[in-house]
Design a protein around this nucleic acid. Sequence first.
DNA 1: TTGAAATCGGACCGCATTAGTCCGAATTAG
DNA 2: CTAATTCGGACTAATGCGGTCCGATTTCAA
Lengths: 140, 140
Amino acid sequence: MRLSNLADYAIVIMAATARKCGGGRVSAADLAQETGIPVPTAQKIVSKLSAAGLLRATRGAGGGLQLARPAAAISMADIVEAIEGPIALVTCIDTGDCAVDHECTVKPHWPVVNAAVRGALADVSLAKIAGSAPAQKELA
Amino acid sequence: MRLSNLADYAIVIMAATARKCGGGRVSAADLAQETGIPVPTAQKIVSKLSAAGLLRATRGAGGGLQLARPAAAISMADIVEAIEGPIALVTCIDTGDCAVDHECTVKPHWPVVNAAVRGALADVSLAKIAGSAPAQKELA
DNA sequence: TTGAAATCGGACCGCATTAGTCCGAATTAG
DNA sequence: CTAATTCGGACTAATGCGGTCCGATTTCAA
């Protein structure tokens, strides 16, 4: 029920990128120092992030990362899916049938739960996260 | 983002228990045969389930398991929490602070997401799962 | 009362996914 | 053209999970 540390770190990195990158480029090393994440791990994360199309990577001297889209158009769900793949609580949905029970009465309910979970994550945009002051109503 | 196989199996076992146990007791071996889950694994699951107070275990010959509460009063969230502990997408909430970032702007948003996820699971009761015919609206 | 069977409960071991680290290929500025 | 800086992919160690087994406890029957 917990998402991987990589996904957690990815969200922190994206937030840091949205904050620091004022139209310019930020290196992975800078992000690592900013967030306290080990440098190689940060590199691994930004690789997946750019492969998923959330970050735009510019190579060479003076290069770096920048957001591929406006922060308001990126949600937690996008980041999590970029790192962990499709949001699904169980794998039997992908395969098509449960290996253990041929007539599983639980299966029909999973799409509902999956959609609800994804909706919860999609409701939080990167702009909200990057903002130092979160919405007050959310603190409840 | 995926819940463990144990939790998945636990839901299947609880559904089978609600279906078969017509006021009587069911053995863990019967449930294993009914669901196709390996017997020792089923034993491990029912142990956690009864430790959490969701199942009532009766020892001795002729004993077995039965639901501790009506099926309508048990939700997916209860079962998942019984197996995996509290529903929290990240561990930093429990510890109190992120180890990597001392002023993490993401932290304030997690309680909202956690509550939404838990709500999605709490909305599905065991009675719904055990019923062979799920609600039609959910199939969408 | 005693025996035996059947049950749950906890402990052990092997495996898999994950987290972390490293080095190489590509690109750009000077 | 050279060199510095960057991202990209491949390797290794480790924590957690899944699976299996055996022992303690309780009940029914004789």
